[in-house]
Amino acid sequence: MNHAVEATSRSEREVDHARGKALANTLFNVALAALFSALFVQAGELPSSMWEPLGAGSFPRLVLGALVVFNLALIVQSIGLYRRAPQQRSVGFARWCHERRLAFGTLFAFAIYALTMPWIGFMLASLAFLLTVQWLLGARHGRRLVVAIVVAIVFSVGLYALFSHVFLISLPKGRLW
C-alpha cells in the first residue's frame, strides 16, 4: 500500500517537472537565441584578413548562426512538450526550488566562500565554509559534529600547508591582515 502511494507521488512529481522543465527550456532558449543573435551581429565587426578568405569573425559567426538554429528548434520542441504535459498537476517553481534547497544552499555558501576568500584568506574561508556546509548537510550533533570539525581543520589548514610547502603554490593569505 505504502509503496503504491510512494510510486504515484513520485510519478506525479515527474509529470510536474516535465511541464515546468518544458517551460524553463523554452524561456532558456529564447534568452540564448537573443544573446547569440546579438553576438552574431557583433562578430560581424571583427576584422577580416588580407591573407585568408575567412577572418577572425567567420568561424564564430558560423557557430553562432548554427546555435540560433538549434535554439529555435528546441523552442519549437519545448512548446510542443509543454502543451502535451497534463496541466492540473502543475506545482510551480517555488516547490521545485524548495526540493533542491540543500543544493542551492551549498552553491550559495560556495559563492560566499569565493567572495570572502580574498579578504579573510584561504585558510579561514575554507574553515568557515567546511563547517557551514557540513552543518547544513546534517552534521549537527555529537560524533558527527566532532568529525565535521576535525575534517574542517584538516582540509583548511592542511591543504594550505600542503600547497605552500609541497607544491609551492601559495593560496590567498587574506587582505585584511
Binding site: F122, L130, L137, P172
Partner: peptide, 17 residues
C-alpha cells in the same frame, strides 16, 4: 555531508592553482 564540502574546497584550490 563530508565529501561534498571537502571536494568543493579542492575545486577552489584547483581553480586558484
Amino acid at each position: 555531508s563530508i565529501i561534498v564540502p571537502v571536494v568543493l574546497v579542492c575545486c577552489a584550490v584547483g581553480a586558484l592553482a
